[in-house]
Measured scan of single mutants.
Amino acid sequence: QKEELKEKAKEAVKRGNKDKARELLKRAGISEEEAKKIIKKIE
């Protein structure tokens, strides 16, 4: 489940939808700070 949400978040970032990505990562139980780092890494 968590990995699936991370994959979806990756796709969202690639489409330029960072808010959606952050939302998905939060749903995966990832903190706001972690989510920001992950999104930065994907960009």
Rank of each mutant, 00 (worst) to 15 (best):
Q1E: 12
Q1Y: 13
Q1A: 13
Q1S: 14
Q1R: 12
K2W: 14
K2A: 12
K2E: 12
K2S: 10
K2T: 12
K2V: 14
K2D: 10
E3S: 08
E3M: 08
E3Y: 03
E3N: 09
E3I: 07
E3F: 03
E3K: 08
E4I: 12
E4G: 08
E4S: 11
E4F: 11
E4W: 12
E4L: 12
E4P: 03
L5S: 04
L5Y: 08
L5G: 01
L5T: 03
L5C: 06
L5F: 08
L5E: 03
L5N: 04
L5D: 03
K6M: 15
K6I: 15
K6G: 06
K6T: 11
K6Q: 11
K6L: 15
K6F: 15
K6A: 09
K6R: 11
E7N: 11
E7A: 11
E7I: 08
E7M: 10
E7F: 06
K8L: 14
K8H: 06
K8C: 14
K8Y: 05
K8W: 07
A9R: 01
A9I: 14
A9P: 01
A9H: 01
A9F: 05
K10E: 10
K10N: 04
K10Y: 10
K10F: 09
E11G: 04
E11R: 07
E11K: 05
E11S: 06
E11D: 08
A12T: 03
A12W: 05
A12G: 01
A12Y: 06
A12Q: 09
A12L: 13
A12K: 01
A12C: 10
A12M: 12
V13S: 02
V13W: 07
V13E: 02
V13L: 11
V13Q: 02
V13C: 08
V13K: 01
K14V: 09
K14T: 07
K14Y: 06
K14S: 07
K14D: 05
K14I: 12
R15W: 03
R15G: 10
R15F: 05
R15E: 13
R15M: 13
G16W: 00
G16F: 01
G16Q: 04
G16S: 02
G16H: 05
G16T: 02
G16C: 09
G16N: 04
N17A: 08
N17W: 10
N17R: 07
N17F: 11
K18M: 14
K18A: 11
K18D: 05
K18G: 06
K18C: 13
K18P: 12
K18L: 15
D19K: 11
D19P: 05
D19E: 11
D19C: 11
D19H: 07
K20A: 13
K20E: 15
K20Q: 12
K20V: 12
A21P: 00
A21H: 01
A21G: 01
A21T: 01
A21S: 00
A21C: 11
A21Y: 05
R22A: 12
R22L: 15
R22Q: 11
R22P: 03
R22W: 12
R22N: 15
E23D: 13
E23A: 03
E23N: 04
E23R: 04
E23C: 07
E23V: 02
E23Y: 00
E23G: 02
E23W: 00
E23P: 00
L24A: 04
L24W: 01
L24V: 02
L25V: 03
L25S: 02
L25K: 03
L25D: 11
L25Y: 02
L25A: 06
K26R: 11
K26Q: 15
K26W: 03
K26P: 15
K26T: 13
R27T: 14
R27P: 11
R27H: 11
R27C: 15
R27F: 06
R27W: 05
R27K: 14
R27I: 12
R27V: 11
A28H: 02
A28W: 03
A28V: 02
A28R: 00
A28K: 00
A28Y: 03
A28G: 04
A28T: 03
G29T: 00
G29R: 00
G29M: 02
G29S: 02
G29H: 00
I30N: 02
I30R: 00
I30V: 10
I30P: 00
I30D: 01
I30E: 05
I30M: 11
S31Q: 05
S31W: 04
S31Y: 03
S31L: 05
S31V: 04
S31C: 04
S31M: 05
S31F: 04
S31R: 04
S31T: 09
E32A: 10
E32S: 07
E32M: 07
E32C: 07
E32L: 08
E32G: 07
E32W: 09
E33G: 07
E33Y: 05
E33D: 09
E33R: 10
E33S: 09
E33P: 05
E33T: 07
E33F: 04
E33V: 08
E33I: 08
E34L: 06
E34T: 05
E34K: 06
E34N: 06
E34D: 10
E34H: 05
A35P: 00
A35R: 02
A35W: 05
A35T: 06
A35S: 06
A35H: 01
A35F: 05
K36I: 14
K36S: 14
K36D: 15
K36R: 12
K36Q: 13
K36E: 15
K36M: 14
K37E: 14
K37I: 13
K37M: 10
K37S: 10
K37R: 13
K37D: 12
I38G: 00
I38H: 02
I38T: 02
I38W: 07
I39M: 07
I39K: 00
I39T: 01
K40F: 09
K40E: 15
K41N: 11
K41V: 09
K41Y: 10
K41R: 12
K41C: 13
K41Q: 14
K41I: 12
K41P: 02
K41S: 12
I42Y: 12
I42G: 03
I42N: 02
I42T: 06
I42V: 09
E43R: 05
E43Q: 08
E43L: 12
E43A: 08
E43M: 11
E43N: 05
